[in-house]
Amino acid sequence: MRNNRLILVALLFLGLINFPLISLFDTSKTVGGVPVIYAYCLGVWFVVIALTGLILNDKNKK
């Protein structure tokens, strides 16, 4: 079950950083002085790391 969740997170990550979706954030605007595309990539990266950590530290290891 845990391996299936990790595979799902990996596929989600690949989908979120794929070209058609990431090109939506390729603008000249900034968020707090950081280009939007960098903020998006770092946000996606943080979410994937957090999800992976939650899956690996699950107390109900099945």
Rank of each mutant, 00 (worst) to 15 (best):
L42A: 11
N18V: 13
L6Q: 02
Y38H: 06
D58I: 09
V31R: 03
L12K: 04
G15W: 04
K62E: 14
K61F: 09
F46T: 14
M1C: 08
F19P: 15
R2A: 07
F25M: 07
K59L: 08
I49Q: 08
D26E: 07
F13P: 01
R5W: 13
L54T: 06
I37S: 02
D58R: 10
G32S: 04
L16T: 01
Y38V: 13
V48P: 00
K59C: 04
M1D: 15
F46S: 10
L21Q: 05
A39S: 12
L14N: 11
L21G: 06
A10T: 06
I22G: 00
T52D: 04
W45L: 12
I7K: 10
I22D: 03
G15L: 07
A39Q: 09
K29Y: 13
F13H: 09
T30G: 02
T52I: 13
L6F: 01
M1Y: 10
M1F: 13
I37Y: 05
A50F: 14
F19E: 15
W45Q: 10
P20T: 06
P35E: 04
P35W: 03
A50V: 14
R5L: 11
I37C: 00
W45R: 02
I55N: 02
N3T: 14
T27G: 01
N57Q: 09
K62M: 12
A39I: 06
S28N: 13
G43P: 06
I55R: 00
I22K: 05
F46V: 14
L51S: 08
K61T: 12
S28H: 10
A10Q: 06
V9N: 04
N18T: 15
Y40H: 03
K59N: 11
K29N: 14
L56E: 08
P35I: 02
V44Q: 00
I7M: 05
M1Q: 15
